[in-house]
């Protein structure tokens, strides 16, 4: 996965909620403040530390958001996506991605 330098003008996404369709991110942390049950459930779905997540699309009204993680496609609502912090990310490459 490419690591990219963010210019000062573009703020880097901090959580999964900020990742745009087509972008790939690496999960740094699933928030501690989250209910442990919710955190385990997210983990069981594949949202674990160190996993690569691709944002595929967002629903017409912004929620839910469709991700590809661990080989499967899973949707989360905005609220859950916000509790997953990401580390490295790469923006959509110039060539279109299928």
């Amino acid at each position: 996965m490419k690591r990219s330098k963010q210019g000062a003008a573009t703020p880097s996404p901090v959580t999964l909620c900020d990742v745009k369709p087509g972008e790939i991110a690496c999960i740094a942390l699933v928030e501690d403040a989250l209910d442990p049950v919710v955190r385990r459930r997210l983990g069981a779905l594949g949202f674990r530390e160190g996993e690569q997540v691709t944002c595929l699309r967002r629903a017409p009204m912004g929620s839910p958001i469709l991700f590809r993680v661990c080989g499967a496609e899973v949707c989360l609502r905005k609220e859950q996506a916000r509790s997953v912090r990401i580390g490295e990310w790469s923006p959509a490459p110039v060539a279109s991605v299928s």
Binding site: D35, V38, R41, L42, L45, P64, L66, A72, E73, V74, C75, L76, R77, Q80
Partner: peptide
Amino acid sequence: ALPFYLEMPP
């Protein structure tokens, strides 16, 4: 409450 999630199978 369970958090919302939805899997999209192929």
